[in-house]
Amino acid sequence: MEKCTSKKKGVFNASVLANEQIGECFYRLSLAIEGQAAEAFNMTKPGQFAEFELSNASLPSEEKIPNELADKALRQIILRRPFSFSDIEITGNKGKLEVLYCVLGPATLRMKTLSPGDKISIIGPLGNGFSIEREKTLAILVAGGMGVPPLLHLAKELSKSKTKTIAFVGAKSGSQLPCSEIKNVQTLISTDDGSMGFKGFVTAMLKEWLVKEKPDVSKAIIYTCGPEIMMAGVAKIAGEFGIGCQVSLERVMACGTGLCQGCAVKCIDKKTKEAGYKLCCKDGPVFWADEVVF
């Protein structure tokens, strides 16, 4: 997926516009960028990401740190953290980047305390995003939990074309979703506990729908982001039905820029049929499902 790599990546300053809780588990951070940063992020594809420097953001005061994160709060972080975007708007030499995140560790605990006017350093745009297949008339989005954000961005891009889009969104429970529907898109929700929508895994809901609706698979494409085990399930279903599928993977990264070689993804070379490692940050994070060894 080389076509959608942005060339003008760099280290940029971004200014916090807003940072607010949405729903029970998610927060939305909005950042303002300008000048060269706005230029660099102008062509950013959904699924591309940036590395955020959060080590100098402060921790919440002690009483605001949840018990289950008390130990993690004691970690001095040094590495940046990768985030993809739920939305990017660029107008002229100014732009807005939007990130949805959950507070899970020492970096996101710090991220939560950012307030309007704070400056943070970001490196981006990085990696290869979803490659929008214009000839496909049906786009099937499959998101799980924290995998929702880049698909919101993708849904917005798809809405600019004539592609019909349908979204399958799964989570453990209704309260763990960042939104109950994707704007302007037919959205089917599944929850493991049945608190909202279909009771069960999003993969089961997807399969049921494909069997029932029998879409023209030659005109359809699946874009997915979520837990790797879920995406492995989606990739398998896509294979069974003969639908092309792009997966957005996640790995622990030290740099995000191809320097550390830490974020290896086992892939099969389509020509040689040999297995080898690619890098999630440079070759991905979006891969064709049939090249990934899950």
Binding site: R251, M253, C263
Partner: peptide
Amino acid sequence: RDGNPVPRIVETNSGMLNAIGLA
């Protein structure tokens, strides 16, 4: 060399461990 399986990286207090395996 393909290098080691993942995880190859883990952050520690003010540092990190790597086990890339000379990929």
